[in-house]
């Protein structure tokens, strides 16, 4: 059987993207894996056991609780709000639809510092004095910054559903709610899954919101695991420790991602044709 010969032009065309993929994906990962084995404050002899030893840091358990809180509140809340708003926007012909989508996008357009400023103005700085409120505050800021973009994306995917399918469902007697729950949601489920994974990863990796509150003197500098990783790297110059914690946080994102791709038809070309 003759060997399949690839043409050069497609490989040249994809080369810049491939180079960026290597530089921003593979190589940092390899460098990080090597870095972890270097001596660290938590493992003076330096070895891969740093990946486990770093988890004994006294800040890790409270930060895991914060992460769990975000996973239980921020992720479902954002998914629900993004789907509810995009389904409502798609449910009826509405004057001002474009304006509304722009308004829902506004909190996501505002830089993180502005979100903090707005939340502090409306709630008052005293709200952060009670440590129990901080997790709600961070959830609120992360929710307001993230939900709008997802409304725009999911509204776009809803608009891509074939008109004939929706019309057939209406002829079969579907009302708006049935249309949303039985036709539209199942048809965009692949993108709902995608949104869920990205939000889960964002909750595990949260950094901006607690860091901005910290810059304003409203929280500690170790509210999230990512902040702890940075404090290792930039405050104690322990890059092995910081990188180990970063890799520990990366593992669940990769596992969930691989599972999602293998269990759905995301990778199949004919799923989109």
């Amino acid at each position: 059987m003759p060997r399949h010969r690839y043409r050069v032009v497609p490989m040249v065309m994809i080369a810049p993207y491939f180079a960026l993929m290597l530089f921003n994906g593979f190589i940092p990962l390899l460098v990080a894996i090597r870095e972890v084995a270097n001596p660290s404050w938590v493992n003076l002899n330096g070895s891969y056991t740093t990946l486990f030893r770093i988890l004994k840091d006294f800040r890790v358990v409270p930060d895991l609780r914060h992460t769990l809180f975000l996973l239980l509140v921020f992720v479902p809340l954002t998914i629900f709000a993004a789907l509810a708003l995009s389904l409502l926007l798609d449910a009826t012909a509405l004057r001002g639809n474009t304006f509304m989508r722009l308004v829902f996008l506004l909190p996501g357009v505002a830089a993180g510092g502005i979100s903090v400023l707005i939340w502090m103005y409306f709630l008052g700085r005293h709200i952060a004095w009670n440590p129990g409120n901080v997790k709600w505050l961070i959830t609120g800021i992360a929710f307001s910054s993230g939900a709008g973009s997802w409304v725009v994306i999911q509204y776009g995917s809803l608009r891509s559903i074939s008109h004939e399918v929706l019309e057939a469902a209406r002829v079969d007697g579907c009302n708006r709610l049935q249309l949303a729950l039985r036709i539209k949601l199942p048809m965009i489920s692949r993108y709902v899954g995608y949104m869920s994974i990205l939000l889960t990863a964002a909750a595990i990796q949260i950094y901006n919101e607690p860091a901005l509150l910290n810059a304003d003197g409203l929280t500690s500098n170790w509210w999230s695991l990512n902040q702890v990783a940075y404090s290792y790297a930039f405050q104690t110059a322990d890059f092995a420790g910081g990188t180990a914690l970063s890799l520990d946080m990366l593992i669940p994102s990769i596992v969930i991602g691989v599972f999602f791709i293998l269990k759905t038809d995301f990778l199949k070309r004919d799923a989109y044709q």
Binding site: G25, T243, I261
Partner: peptide, 23 residues
Amino acid sequence: MLFITLITMLIPITAMAMPLYVL
């Protein structure tokens, strides 16, 4: 390549920030 694109798409930049910094 498509698989790696999808995997990296599902990992926020925050996850890679520290390894990227080291590089």
